[in-house]
Every structure is written in C-alpha cells, then in structure tokens.
Simulated assay, not measured.
Amino acid sequence: MGRTYRELLAVALLCGIALTGCSSSEAKPAAPSPSVSPPVTGTVEQIAAHLGCKPEIHTDAEQLREGRCGTGANVFSVTTFPAEKYKQAWLYEAGGWGGWYVVGPGWTVSASTKEAAVSRQKKLGGSLVDGSKVQKGTPPAT
C-alpha cells in the first residue's frame, strides 16, 4: 500500500464525509472479529509506539490524523479520528481498496496481509476487518 494509495484514501474519506454529512442511513463495515485484548487508545504516535514505530505524519485534518510507518512493502498507516463517525466513514471508503485493518476506539491500523494484521492486533488489541468485505452501499451517517 503505497503513498499514493493512502493519499487517495484520505481524500476519498474527506470527500465522503462532505457528501454524507446529512445522511441518516446506517451502513456498517463488515463485522469485525472479536478483540483479542482491550484495545489501546491514544494519538497516532502513541499507537505507533506500541508497534515499535515513530510515524511520519502525512495527514493532519479535522476529521483524521494519519501517520505512516515501515519501509517498502512493509509500509502501513496508523490513523486516528476525533469521533467514531469519522472512523466509520473512513472504513466505508476503504472498502473498495481491500487490505486488512486493525480497528480500535477512534483508530485504525492498516495491513497488507491478514498475518500482518493479526500480528498488529496482538500488540494493540482491537478487531480485525477484512477490507475486501466492507459493505459498500449506503454511506454511514455522520
């Protein structure tokens, strides 16, 4: 998941939030797996520290803050949200891109494979979401 992919995803999220701000529908991403432990909370930097990473911040917007960690094929994003509605909108937009996500209260961490997601989940808690199974359709209410 390269830099351009994540930038497009962030733009899509911001556009999706703008377009769905008045929606009253309740679309939800694919049912996440049960959490393996109580999920961590915190800033992008605090969550990334649990993974042994010092993130490079790439998006710092009102609806989300995103940092990137890793190199080459091991690049992943740590994204935090000021409200759950923004996280749900982000997951909705991410659905078309596939990948895996570890999802906690107010945050998501990306992974290119299920194995990488499971490894991050063991350190962070939270739930696993298969991005290829996020239900698109009616955008979530924001």
Rank of each mutant, 00 (worst) to 15 (best):
R6W: 00
G2M: 08
S23N: 13
E66A: 10
E84T: 08
S24P: 06
V102T: 07
A61G: 01
L8S: 10
Q46I: 04
E26K: 13
T59E: 12
M1Q: 12
A111T: 06
Q63F: 05
E93Y: 00
K87L: 15
T71E: 15
T79F: 08
C22V: 08
H58D: 10
T43M: 03
S23R: 06
L124W: 09
I57Q: 04
S132G: 08
N74H: 14
V134A: 03
G2W: 06
L91I: 07
F81V: 07
L19N: 01
T43F: 02
T113L: 04
E45N: 07
C53K: 10
E93V: 11
T80Q: 03
Q88M: 13
G42L: 00
T41M: 05
P32L: 15
T41V: 09
K54F: 06
R6H: 00
T79W: 06
P29K: 03
P140W: 11
S119V: 14
V102M: 05
A48N: 09
E66V: 11
V44Q: 10
A83C: 00
A49S: 14
T59W: 01
A18Q: 12
T108M: 01
V78N: 06
Q121P: 00
K133V: 08
L13R: 01
T43E: 07
A94M: 13
V40M: 10
R68H: 11
S37G: 13
T4S: 11
E45V: 02
P29G: 02
A83D: 10
G70K: 12
A30I: 07
L8V: 09
A10I: 12
S25I: 08
L64T: 06
V118G: 00
E115R: 06
L128G: 06
E66L: 11
P139W: 07
K85N: 10
V36N: 07
K114A: 11
A117E: 02
G42W: 01
L124S: 13
R68C: 06
V134I: 14
S119G: 12
V44C: 08
S35D: 09
G70I: 14
S35R: 08
S37W: 06
S127Y: 04
A116C: 03
W90L: 02
S132D: 07
A30F: 02
C22L: 11
G21I: 04
K136N: 09
L64M: 13
L9F: 04
W97Y: 13
L91Y: 01
A30N: 10
G72F: 07
W107F: 14
F76H: 15
S77C: 03
A89N: 04
Q46L: 05
G16K: 04
S35C: 09
V78E: 10
V102D: 02
I17T: 11
A30P: 04
C53Q: 12
V75P: 03
V118R: 05
P34F: 07
P29Y: 02
H50V: 03
G104V: 05
L13I: 00
K28G: 01
Y92Q: 04
L19Y: 04
K133M: 12
C69Y: 08
A12Y: 02
T71M: 12
P140L: 15
T138H: 08
V109F: 06
K54E: 15
D60Q: 09
Q88C: 02
E84D: 12
I17V: 14
G126P: 07
S110A: 13
S23D: 12
E66T: 15
I57M: 09
P32N: 15
F76T: 15
T71A: 15
A48Q: 08
G106A: 03
A111H: 00
C22M: 07
